[in-house]
Deep mutational scan, measured.
Amino acid sequence: EFSMMFKHFDKDKSGRLNHQEFKSCLRSLGYDLPMVEEGEPDPEFEAILDTVDPNRDGHVSLQEYMAFMISRE
């Protein structure tokens, strides 16, 4: 189920989600993330990124995504 969600939000089929795609994916899974303006701080989402994209390369791989989802179950 999680990998299907990942593929759905991987719009460019790159095998990874940019942070915006990842945020959309989390919202569709029921995460209550506040709407913030582009460039505004988003501490809740930043905290999630610290876990799922610790190297802050700007992308979430399928492996990082799956590890995050399994840790939340």
Rank of each mutant, 00 (worst) to 15 (best):
F2G: 10
S3T: 09
M4R: 15
M5R: 15
F6S: 08
F6I: 11
F9S: 11
D10G: 08
D12T: 08
D12S: 15
K13Y: 15
S14P: 08
G15R: 04
R16I: 00
L17V: 05
L17D: 01
N18F: 02
N18T: 15
H19V: 04
K23G: 04
S24A: 06
L26P: 01
R27I: 14
R27H: 11
S28W: 07
L29Y: 10
G30L: 03
G30E: 05
D32N: 15
D32R: 12
D32H: 13
D32M: 10
L33Y: 07
P34L: 08
P34Q: 09
M35P: 13
M35F: 10
E37A: 14
E37Q: 14
E37W: 06
G39M: 06
G39R: 06
G39Q: 08
E40T: 12
E40V: 11
E40W: 07
P41R: 13
P41S: 14
D42Q: 09
D42H: 05
P43N: 13
P43C: 10
E44F: 08
E44W: 08
F45S: 02
F45Q: 00
E46W: 05
E46Q: 09
A47Y: 08
A47M: 13
A47N: 11
I48R: 00
I48N: 01
I48E: 00
I48Y: 05
L49M: 04
L49G: 00
D50S: 06
D50E: 09
T51C: 14
T51P: 00
T51Y: 13
T51F: 10
V52M: 04
V52C: 11
V52P: 00
V52I: 06
V52A: 05
D53A: 02
D53T: 02
P54A: 09
P54F: 06
P54Y: 07
N55Y: 06
R56M: 06
R56T: 03
G58Q: 02
H59P: 01
S61I: 05
S61T: 14
S61N: 09
S61P: 10
S61F: 09
S61Q: 08
L62H: 13
Q63E: 15
Q63L: 07
E64W: 01
Y65L: 06
M66E: 15
A67K: 15
A67Q: 12
A67C: 08
F68W: 11
M69T: 08
I70M: 14
R72T: 09
R72W: 07
E73A: 07
E73T: 15
